[in-house]
Amino acid sequence: MSTTETTASGIGPVEGAELYNVDHPAPLIEAPRRRTKKTPKSTRGNFELAAWLFMRLSGIVLVVLVIGHLIIQLVLDGGVSKVGFAFVAGRWANPYWQVWDLAMLWLAMLHGANGLRTVINDYAERPNSRLWLKGLLYTATVFTILLGTLVIFTFDPNIR
């Protein structure tokens, strides 16, 4: 590890100083937002604001969508035993339920992914583990959203 490298995260080598030395036997914490070679120009912008607001708004919408979904699937008309291929096919013949399920898929996936992103930001300590965890998270999210969307729009009730 070179001592002149640094990262946006405070964990890792600190520029111009060793992580440990006689004066600092405990690892140095880099001063927040210290201007170093690797510091991005600006980490400002409204992404974090939008993400924060999205969590609140999607949360409210998801309460309605998910509870409605659970009641329809598990409680009304004989409960869970009625759910089968024919039941799903019948629902997806109606654009209303297509939109409902599509909204639920997108909102739940983005809400969950953003929540996990903040968890990774808060708990992953090394920049490398952050990178890999987030890469895995985004890949899984994109895959699930695309697959689900594809199924909702191209669902063929006559499949055999």
């Binding site: 927040p32 937002r33 980490t43 400002r44 912008g45 409204n46 992404f47 974090e48 604001l49 993400a51 924060w52 903040t118 930001n121 808060d122």
Partner: peptide
Amino acid sequence: ILNDRDGVWRCR
């Protein structure tokens, strides 16, 4: 300044 990635939005 507080709209930063490490600004108020990191408050839990």
